[in-house]
């Protein structure tokens, strides 16, 4: 497959990803990853300095499922929704059934009282497994432009 073909696959997966989160179909969120995939939220400041801390640091799909279980059953937070705007992805590499891609994103957060804010902006550094019947994230590193988080970050980005 050439780079242009990968572009379509990756863009489709990202569109599905945004729809999954923004439509509160969070139970499906882990299913967009491989079983051994990692999902980590970092910041440009930490990322540039090699500081390893994650705001969320999930090392496999089970941990992602746990996060959704906790959100639904344990954690308490005010009802809120995200709206993801994700840029066209840039394919940065492809080999052995894995595609590396980078995309910019914005998330607008809407609270239950109607107030809206630009919650975060950043970039996704993704590795996508394209060897199966459907593409899945094998690694997703979310790098936030700012390291200030307003109030809390409950729903994954």
């Amino acid at each position: 497959m050439d780079s242009a073909a990968y572009h379509g696959v990756v863009a489709g997966l990202l569109a599905d990803y945004a729809h999954c989160i923004d439509s509160d179909d969070l139970e499906r969120w882990p299913a967009l990853f491989t079983e051994t995939a990692s999902y980590r939220i970092s910041t440009e400041f930490n990322h540039a300095r090699g500081l390893p801390i994650g705001i969320i640091d999930a090392r496999n799909r089970n941990m992602m499922e746990d996060r959704i279980t906790a959100l639904r059953k344990a954690n308490i937070y005010e009802p809120q929704r995200y709206r993801h705007i994700i840029s066209n992805p840039r394919i940065t590499g492809a080999a052995d059934g894995l595609v590396q891609a980078e995309a910019a994103f914005l998330v607008v957060r809407t609270m239950i009282d109607g107030s809206q804010d630009l919650f975060v902006s950043g970039r996704y550094l993704d590795e996508i497994d394209v060897s199966g019947s459907q593409p899945l994230f094998a690694r997703k590193l979310v790098v936030l432009d700012s390291d200030k988080i307003d109030t809390l970050l409950a729903i994954p980005l």
Binding site: N46, I53, I55, K148, I149, T151
Partner: peptide, 8 residues
């Protein structure tokens, strides 16, 4: 140090 973030 393992990393920073700020919560507003």
């Amino acid at each position: 140090v393992l990393g920073y973030y700020t919560q507003t």
